[in-house]
Amino acid sequence: MNVFRLTGDLSHLAAIIILLLKIWKTRSCAGISGKSQILFALVFTTRYLDLLTSFISLYNTSMKVIYIGCSYATVYLIYMKFRATYDGNHDSFRVEFLVVPVGGLAVLINHDFSPLEILWTFSIYLESVAILPQLFMISKTGEAETITTHYLFCLGLYRALYLFNWIWRYYFEGFFDMIAIVAGVVQTVLYCD
């Protein structure tokens, strides 16, 4: 664990909590792309299946449970509890144009052709484009509430910090994961705008 990864995880956690609280307190999900939130829930589900198979640390396990819990809670709030405030007309990004190519790429380019590894690779590729429906929705509505921009900033910051974490780990541990790094660069670039 290094400072970049810890601050990255905390920034990610902050983004997830900011969004959840915003929807809960305002009792509205106006301006929020439900499709992006579904994609994030899918990212966490496919990435954290190893919760069932391996224990790395209390921090690792608890953060994974919190991420999965909050992402499904957010999806629930958007599509169930505050469904009336969901702006489906502007949330019109065709997510199948993301999921299908990402799924294909995960089968073609991965570290190991095993189910868990392919699902992990799928989640890495999907996470790098999961925000597109949200960015698309903001471009259509032409506006983003202040809290949504804070959410996007924290979310963008998290993967940018992970890039520094990977530089750190390569330099000090000789460790690097090209798939995570390339997807992380793509993800960070998408947030820059």
Binding site: N60, M63, Y67, H111, E117, F175, D177, A180
Partner: peptide, 10 residues
């Protein structure tokens, strides 16, 4: 950590 991927990361 397991083969390849950075599985100790979130």
């Amino acid at each position: 950590c397991p083969l390849g991927g950075s599985k100790d990361e979130l």
